[in-house]
Design a protein around this nucleic acid. Sequence first.
DNA 1: CACTAAGCGAGACGGTACGTCTAGTCTTTTT
DNA 2: AAAAAGACTAGACGTACCGTCTCGCTTAGTG
Lengths: 205, 205, 205, 205
Amino acid sequence: MAKKSAPDTTRRSEKSRRAIYAAALELVGEVGYAKTTVEGIAARAGVGKQTIYRWWSSKADVLLEAFLDLAEQTAQDAGQEPYATIPDTGDLAADLKAVLRATVDELLDPRFEVPSRALAAEGLVNEELGRELVAKLLEPSLQLYVQRLRSAQKTGDVRPEVDPRIALELFVSPLAQRWLQHTGPISYEYTDTLVDYALYGLAPR
Amino acid sequence: MAKKSAPDTTRRSEKSRRAIYAAALELVGEVGYAKTTVEGIAARAGVGKQTIYRWWSSKADVLLEAFLDLAEQTAQDAGQEPYATIPDTGDLAADLKAVLRATVDELLDPRFEVPSRALAAEGLVNEELGRELVAKLLEPSLQLYVQRLRSAQKTGDVRPEVDPRIALELFVSPLAQRWLQHTGPISYEYTDTLVDYALYGLAPR
Amino acid sequence: MAKKSAPDTTRRSEKSRRAIYAAALELVGEVGYAKTTVEGIAARAGVGKQTIYRWWSSKADVLLEAFLDLAEQTAQDAGQEPYATIPDTGDLAADLKAVLRATVDELLDPRFEVPSRALAAEGLVNEELGRELVAKLLEPSLQLYVQRLRSAQKTGDVRPEVDPRIALELFVSPLAQRWLQHTGPISYEYTDTLVDYALYGLAPR
Amino acid sequence: MAKKSAPDTTRRSEKSRRAIYAAALELVGEVGYAKTTVEGIAARAGVGKQTIYRWWSSKADVLLEAFLDLAEQTAQDAGQEPYATIPDTGDLAADLKAVLRATVDELLDPRFEVPSRALAAEGLVNEELGRELVAKLLEPSLQLYVQRLRSAQKTGDVRPEVDPRIALELFVSPLAQRWLQHTGPISYEYTDTLVDYALYGLAPR
DNA sequence: CACTAAGCGAGACGGTACGTCTAGTCTTTTT
DNA sequence: AAAAAGACTAGACGTACCGTCTCGCTTAGTG
């Protein structure tokens, strides 16, 4: 009775998949998310529209996977794993500053900027996409900070009663907001300052 | 030779303007931003489409003004001015916690939630709207924190070399991000914790 | 509650209507009925698809009206009314032969051939269109024969007990079938012969 | 060098062929010719699409063969040969009326009606199919009338100078047109009248 | 008796057109 | 002159089929 049986993944055309990812990212970069259309992606990829609708449910879905794929490819091309963990040299401030500087570089990379901003925007308004984004992209990274902060609690560099999941937001969220909402410039100096303020507080010691 | 002379504002129909604001906010609340259409707003407002296009350039523009109007109305209805300044009782932590608790209340008010999230989303992707949003809604609020922190520097509650514009992000941005991106729950307890962490730092004293 | 209110005919664009008729007839002539598409008609007419769907329910419907319009225009251009009646010179055979010869000319006119054959084909399979075709195009012509045959019955040229509606089919239907189904050649000689056979019978006198 | 070698008929699956015929006729009967699709036929027949395209060039082609097959089967099931000849009892009028009555029965048989009308319609517009239809279905039947009329000319029942190929159209074409174009009811009385009119003419004797 | 080599069911593919929806413009009539 | 109404051109939406193209799997016949 099932009208739509799920398509057979084993027969899927790898070539088409890659062409669709490439076309989607290109178009979002060129004309922006709103003006990117499924039709346009199909045309640029040299693919029938149905091939897109067969495997993805929406434009947002295509772009999410395309972006995840891009991130994965880039990671493999550069170092092996992007950041399995945050380095632990014993100097917490230095470690955090290093990671945040790398994040700054990434946020300013134009290849990532447009699609990730587009996805973030769509994620605000589209519950499902939002949850996927957070689960697949954001939360894994944040967990790395949680680990590093827990380690710092063991060495006494962070007070033991501090909740690491909240603590990390002190330096991560400001950067995120400046980038997302253009509320201020982004630089190494800025993130270094965030780490210092967060670790040692605003009140005099 | 000018085909489009600017419309004559003195002849503008106040009734239509109000009806359009109301219709826009209702529709965004009912069906979400993406499914709200100019046509739908015009129909619900009992207004011709051209009347919308004559005075606004886009759906986002209508909604921005509608939202600003709503904010203004609500402010006038409730207390006079919402927060011309942040209270200065001499207890910085208490003052910040009070304001952030009020912000939490506002963020959880369903009348504000959908349209402001929609505007924020559009603002990520639409440069012009984003700048307007930041300039008209966000930055004025943030300046209040700047003032309160400067005052705290004078009383010695905040270290003098701290940049208040960055400092405020330690407790404001985490809240903003949790709300915008659903990365965590929002509560009085959470914002209180943020203030404590930000003021006294994560490192042991 | 009515979702689709009927469109307002008084505001209809005459220019678009004419352009659509012209495009439809051209395309049917150039590529045939099956390969003529609503999209193609809209494109050639420089018209939005919705303008077609607003006023017509289908490709067949457009073509029917376009053809009726063509027939009307052609009639007006040539003599006033095409054939308000069949001539009555007193010589029944001659009168019928004359009209059938004119019909032969019309059937062989390439401007009429393709669209009318296309409509006829669609009419076979599409009940509603078929009834409209018969009612608006075919039956009015046949009634002219009925009148002429009745007149002939008064003058004694046709037996009084003959049913004129059936009688006319003896010479009209053969011509129709040859033309529609390509079952034989069409010529003045052929229609003359049909009239002779029909009037005087096959059996010896 | 030949990309497409002709398929090997000896290996053809008889089971599939029969299933395709059955599915095609069922679907045309249920949803009409236009809404019958190759994909639908394949699905109902439990057959791959390629199996249809391997042996037939089009939907029309499938249906033509399916119909010919049906006609053949029906003929074999009923009497042996359908009508190798038209009976020759010496009474021409009676013989023709008998055959036409049988034709009326056939035309009103719902098993035949939909597919044959569909084929006829397609034949009007599709030259190739039209010629095949005429050659394989129509002309053979008409030749039987030619023979009977020639025989009648020998016995003096039909004038010797009459062209039998044209003469037969006097009673066959009207029936065909009424059936095809729904221009009038079909009955034994009607076909009897046609024969009488055709044999003895409309003019008084 | 394994070994081709075809036909087969299945269904993914690049496409075209469908009929619907909305954007933003233009025109007509009313206030 | 602004406004209500709504028809207009334009073009994307998601769906349905087209006809082609593999994929494994029978199923013969051949070596």
